[in-house]
Design a protein around this nucleic acid. Structure first.
Length: 219
DNA sequence: ACCCAGGGTCATA
DNA sequence: TATGACCATGGG
């Protein structure tokens, strides 16, 4: 039932308040951040984005013009810099081909959500979570973002078996929750916030806002 | 010294 | 289709 999936959200929101995601000044910055943050701490991504801004290269034209070695050096703090250099260029190439290099948010008017998601997944370096992050946080479209924490936390809550695929979990949340962009936005951000505070360096139960509804010892 | 971040690709079976 | 190696910096 719907309340099973809304109750954790309510408890998280009550504890942590609105998270104001995505942290980024423009949709283009959000898209770049979504790619750079793959398996990477956000603090390191901020450093990379700051370096791009300082070099006046946080735009498609500059990113596509820079030599690989130069771009890699600029984004070095974000890690995987050689991999992400290729991915950033593929992403910018895609935006240019769509004619939205300066306004990625305009993608939203070009196709349906499933159509856009399909095309994003075809871009080198964009997988399911990155695609959904772009759809939700840059295009303001209602695609629920699933991450490893969603998997783990809702498994602990007994709402997932723990073996479901990304697609299955996404479909479940979208079926159990109203298709509300603000709700999806806040929910995923709060899950990441919970993980930051209660899953590291060691999972702990004391003080966890989900403890009262969590049947196991820790998140 | 060790663990892991707001993942994804590619080679292999 | 499903694992496993690989990518790399920086903070706890």
């Amino acid at each position: 039932m719907t309340t099973d999936f809304l109750t954790p959200f309510e408890r998280l929101l009550e504890r942590f308040g609105p998270q104001h995601w995505w942290p980024g000044e423009t949709p283009f910055e959000v898209v770049v951040g979504a790619m750079l943050t793959q398996n990477t701490a956000w603090g390191n991504v901020e450093k990379a984005i700051d370096r791009l801004k300082a070099a006046d290269t946080l735009n498609c034209r500059a990113i596509l013009t820079l030599a690989d070695a130069e771009l890699a050096d600029l984004i070095r703090p974000a890690g995987y810099f050689n991999v992400k250099t290729k991915r950033l260029k593929a992403l910018c190439q895609f935006l240019v081909e769509r004619g939205v290099a300066e306004t990625p948010e305009a993608l939203a008017g070009q196709d349906t959500l499933p159509g856009l998601r399909h095309d994003l997944l075809a871009v080198h370096g964009i997988g399911e979570e990155t695609a959904d992050s772009i759809l939700l946080y840059a295009l303001n479209l209602p695609g629920f973002v699933v991450d490893a924490y969603t998997h783990r936390i809702f498994g602990r809550l007994g709402l997932l078996a723990g073996t479901e695929s990304y697609a299955a979990i996404k479909a479940l949340f979208e079926a159990k929750l109203p298709a509300d962009v603000s709700l999806y936005n806040e929910y995923h951000a709060l899950i990441v916030r919970l993980a930051k505070d209660y899953c590291r360096p060691r999972p702990r139960c004391a003080g966890c806002p989900l403890h009262p509804i969590c049947p196991t010892a820790s998140i």
